[in-house]
Computed example of a mutant assay.
Amino acid sequence: MVKPSPGMRRVLRQAHLYGRLVAYNGKLYSPGDNHRLCSEETAIAMVKAGWLRHRGEDYEVTPDGLRADARRE
């Protein structure tokens, strides 16, 4: 398994905390927040890695994403 970068870990933790992330104007945000977490391109890369699931305008963390965040090697 590929290790997520520190920025990706932050995105995974926020997705786990809030249950979902919202895509808006090519960027991902926590629900109700106006601070950008990452670009949508990064989120797509995380979907391809199996760490996030894309559902409409939302992104949700997967069980593999939780495990990838928990691994701090």
Score class of each variant (00 low, 15 high):
1 M>D: 14
2 V>C: 09
2 V>F: 09
2 V>N: 10
4 P>M: 08
4 P>K: 10
7 G>S: 13
8 M>G: 12
12 L>Y: 05
12 L>W: 05
13 R>G: 07
14 Q>F: 01
15 A>H: 05
17 L>V: 05
17 L>S: 01
17 L>R: 14
18 Y>C: 12
20 R>K: 15
20 R>T: 00
22 V>G: 01
24 Y>I: 00
24 Y>C: 02
24 Y>K: 09
25 N>Y: 06
25 N>I: 03
27 K>I: 01
28 L>D: 06
28 L>W: 02
29 Y>T: 10
29 Y>H: 07
30 S>G: 03
30 S>Y: 00
32 G>K: 00
32 G>C: 02
33 D>A: 06
34 N>S: 10
34 N>Y: 10
34 N>Q: 07
38 C>P: 09
38 C>A: 13
39 S>W: 10
39 S>M: 04
39 S>E: 09
40 E>F: 07
43 A>G: 15
45 A>D: 14
45 A>G: 12
48 K>V: 08
48 K>S: 02
49 A>G: 08
50 G>A: 07
51 W>P: 05
52 L>A: 03
53 R>I: 12
53 R>A: 14
54 H>R: 15
56 G>H: 06
57 E>F: 01
58 D>Q: 10
58 D>P: 00
59 Y>I: 06
59 Y>C: 01
61 V>S: 10
62 T>P: 04
63 P>M: 01
63 P>Y: 03
64 D>S: 15
65 G>K: 06
66 L>A: 02
67 R>E: 15
68 A>W: 11
68 A>M: 12
68 A>G: 12
68 A>E: 11
69 D>S: 14
69 D>H: 14
72 R>D: 08
73 E>C: 00
